[in-house]
Amino acid sequence: MTSSAMQQLYQQIILDHAKSANGAVAELAALDADAATAASAAGVRLAQSHQVNTTCGDEITVRVGLSGTGADARIDEFAWRGAGCSISMASASVLNDTVRGTTVAESEAMLDLFREMLRSRGTIEPDEEVLGDAAAFAGVSKYPARVKCAMLPWVAFEAALLQLAEPA
């Protein structure tokens, strides 16, 4: 009975990402002073954020490591660990592929595009050239209850970046 609506929502790209879970790690301990110091010695600034979707209990921890400063600041390290539905897990995997190695400014621009698409209730036709696999989440925007699932990793990423924000 599998409907086309379900196939629209759960596109093969999403189901594949939910399985491959790119960037997922088995353990992600709380960031302690030792880890931060070691990273700092290697020229990387680390931050981590844990987010929970209270409606369903999904949770995710995202760790970001930045090298360089100012306009050159680049996402050099990215890791996540989470438990949740296929939408949130696939979104974390796509986030990994999207922002790893990009500059902070580039990743923030992607974040804005992704959020805008998800809040559009299906009215924004995504540009696959720009968004890549993240465009597959356009179908999610028609399901307001699931937008939170898709946003969860990105919100964690955003919160981690915020911790590393340089004073203007």
């Binding site: 379900m6 929502l9 409606t55 209990g57 539905c85 939408i87």
Partner: peptide
Amino acid sequence: GVHAHDVGQFLDEAGIAVRVGHHCAQ
């Protein structure tokens, strides 16, 4: 292998309303 939220979504598409999550009993 399938998260409850996805199960609930799939059922809802078929008009079937169920509860998914921890049901306030973590």
